[in-house]
Design a protein around this nucleic acid. Structure first.
Lengths: 145, 145
DNA sequence: TACATTTCCTACTGAAATACTAAGATTAGT
DNA sequence: ACTAATCTTAGTATTTCAGTAGGAAATGTA
């Protein structure tokens, strides 16, 4: 159904929280879990991939926590979502041509490639900084919780 | 994982076959199944939604089969994929806001909306006629099966 | 050193979606 | 009647998803 999994969705919310605390020192996962209403246990699964590609760094032990490893302006939504979802290709044959013998003559595959590229482009064009800006604009227009 | 299901993929291949036989009279599902190497049993599941939105018409009984209900130029990939996948929204809350209480203040949702719109746009911009053209171009460059 | 706090890692599990298959009912032409 | 086709419903095996659980490793503090 072409739906983002919870990994991609929760992951961007997690990253937005980290972005909002950039330069405030490490943030506890526990706190993010509380604010975002997601279990810490599940959030823990999202960190390894984000660390692996250098978006997040962690400090273990007491007074530890997680920090953005780069400024919010340098982290795009594509970075986040791709690392957590594994791939943004709408079809497997774009990542692994060997899965299908029709690859060369398949025209629908060409369309899926266009689709993938437009997904890339859309998500690349938005950074965590953009989200923060959006957040601020939004809350200034909200007169209710 | 944001992957198209086989419904969307097989469905576009099915529709391309119908498009290539537009104005040749009804096509047997059996024949399409053979060409595309998909079981007729499974293809049968894809027809009801396509008929429901008026993309395909069927003739039952002997000498029956399926026909495109509109010219290939008037059927976009969005029509096909959306009808078969059910929705093209990367997140459920775009279709059904009531599933999440954070809808109003959620900035990531705004990004998913952008993403959905770019998916719409990409798929709307391609019609079955475009696929046929692409197919022709492609086969003229292929010197092997 | 002992302890508390935190990240890190692995295994497991229930639920849902996916990708089919099967079998017959219905319709239409010959 | 008979044959050829679509139509419809039910069932099932497999995979993916979402989440829990439990403990190991690291780090600061008393």
């Amino acid at each position: 159904m072409m739906r983002l999994s919870t990994r991609g969705r929760y992951g961007t919310r997690l990253m937005l929280q980290l972005a909002q605390n950039y330069k405030n020192g490490p943030v506890l996962l526990k706190d993010i879990a509380l604010k975002e209403d997601i279990s810490t246990g599940y959030l823990e699964h999202l960190l390894p991939p984000l660390k692996a590609i250098g978006l997040v760094s962690a400090t273990r032990g007491a007074h530890g926590g997680y920090t953005l490893a780069k400024p919010p302006s340098e982290i795009s939504l594509r970075d986040i979502v791709q690392s957590l979802e594994g791939s943004l290709s709408p079809v497997e044959c774009l990542d692994t041509p060997s899965v299908c013998s029709r690859v060369q003559r398949c025209v629908s595959r060409d369309i899926w490639k266009l689709l993938r590229d437009s997904i890339y482009q859309t998500l690349e064009s938005k950074t965590l900084e953009d989200l923060i800006t959006l957040q601020k604009e939004k809350s200034s227009h909200m007169y209710y919780i």
